[in-house]
Amino acid sequence: MEFCDECGSMMKTDDGVWVCDNCGYTKPRDDAKEAAMTTTQGQEETEIIDVSDAENRGLPTTEVHCSECGNDEAYWYMQQIRSADESETRFFVCTECEHRWREDDH
């Protein structure tokens, strides 16, 4: 994605140049710079987080009831599991039995 140097609007490509639809500014495309740009392709994969050593990783704890063992404390972390325009999901890991659940599971 490229932004206009004149007005800041998002630019589009047209026959080897970047063109601003808002103000008409144009500039040549730079293949090396474009190759380094981050794209959204392939970002559907979710990262797997190993929480087996949650205490050693410094995860925060909160007071929440574990349905498996009845403990009232769990580690928690946030993770983006849906598209970027949706809020993150909070996950819990019981400090006693290591049972795992999402905030919306209860």
Rank of each mutant, 00 (worst) to 15 (best):
E2Y: 00
S9G: 08
K12T: 14
D14G: 05
D15G: 01
D15E: 14
V19A: 03
V19F: 04
D21C: 04
N22P: 00
P28H: 09
P28I: 06
R29Q: 15
E34G: 03
E34F: 02
A35K: 08
M37R: 11
M37H: 13
M37I: 11
T38A: 14
T38G: 13
T38V: 13
T40D: 15
G42M: 06
Q43M: 12
I48D: 10
I49H: 11
V51M: 11
E55F: 00
R57D: 14
R57W: 02
R57A: 13
G58S: 04
P60F: 05
P60S: 12
T61M: 13
T62F: 01
V64I: 15
V64H: 01
H65I: 07
C66V: 01
S67F: 05
C69Y: 03
Y75D: 13
W76T: 09
M78P: 02
Q79I: 06
R82M: 15
T89H: 01
T89R: 01
F91C: 01
F91N: 04
F92R: 02
C94T: 03
T95Q: 02
E98S: 06
E98H: 06
R100N: 00
R100L: 05
R100I: 10
E103Y: 05
D105Y: 06
D105P: 03
D105L: 06
